[in-house]
């Protein structure tokens, strides 16, 4: 029913990407550049030399009480990670306007083992970061595969999203 393996054309026509972020040494920058390298994409330091630029405008993470126990104490925590970004081409034209990506996870809290639950929270944060990175790469692929002619109309269309 029409299923076919994803063609090689769709993936490797991204040659180089520049990541523009205020803090180049935080975890999110690290995992985005690592997975770009894993996809044979050169992470370029100079914005104007790169084929695309992923501009990280804002990042935030939040922990909230997900549910409470009989005595109204925390029994589940909810973690959310947000990243606001936009994608530009080599000379600064917006290809994907500013948008915010979100990831959300829950985990059971155990009052008697707080240290281990902090460890689980750290691991879930890593998994959420990888999820956000994967979404950014899917968007980069979509932009790279846009037929050149319709890129301007695509931009309006993207802006509508």
């Amino acid at each position: 029913c029409g299923w076919h393996l994803r063609g090689t054309a769709q993936v490797n026509n991204i040659s180089s990407v520049h990541i523009s972020a205020a803090d180049r040494f935080n975890d999110f920058y690290e995992s985005l550049s690592r997975s770009l390298e894993a996809n044979d994409v050169v992470v370029e330091n100079n914005a104007t030399k790169a084929q695309y630029s992923v501009v990280i405008l804002d990042q935030s993470s939040r922990r909230r009480t997900g549910s409470v126990s009989v005595s109204a104490r925390v029994s589940e925590y909810q973690l959310t990670e947000n990243v606001t970004m936009m994608i530009l081409d080599g000379n600064g034209k917006t290809l994907l306007p500013r948008s915010t990506l979100t990831a959300e996870r829950y985990f059971d809290f155990d009052e008697n083992d707080v240290q281990s639950k902090e460890g689980e929270a750290e691991m879930l944060k890593r998994e959420m970061r990888d999820d956000l990175v994967r979404q950014i790469i899917i968007r980069l692929n979509a932009i790279a595969n846009r037929p050149a002619a319709s890129s301007t109309s695509a931009e309006q269309d993207a802006a509508a999203h």
């Binding site: 501009v55 405008l57 600064g92 306007p97 500013r98």
Partner: peptide, 22 residues
């Protein structure tokens, strides 16, 4: 950053090669 409606984002290449977005 909830003021997306009234502000417009613009990026210019800065000498250091970074994007200056404001």
């Amino acid at each position: 950053e909830s003021s997306s409606g009234k502000m417009q984002w613009e990026c210019k290449a800065s000498p250091s090669g970074e994007w200056q977005c404001g």
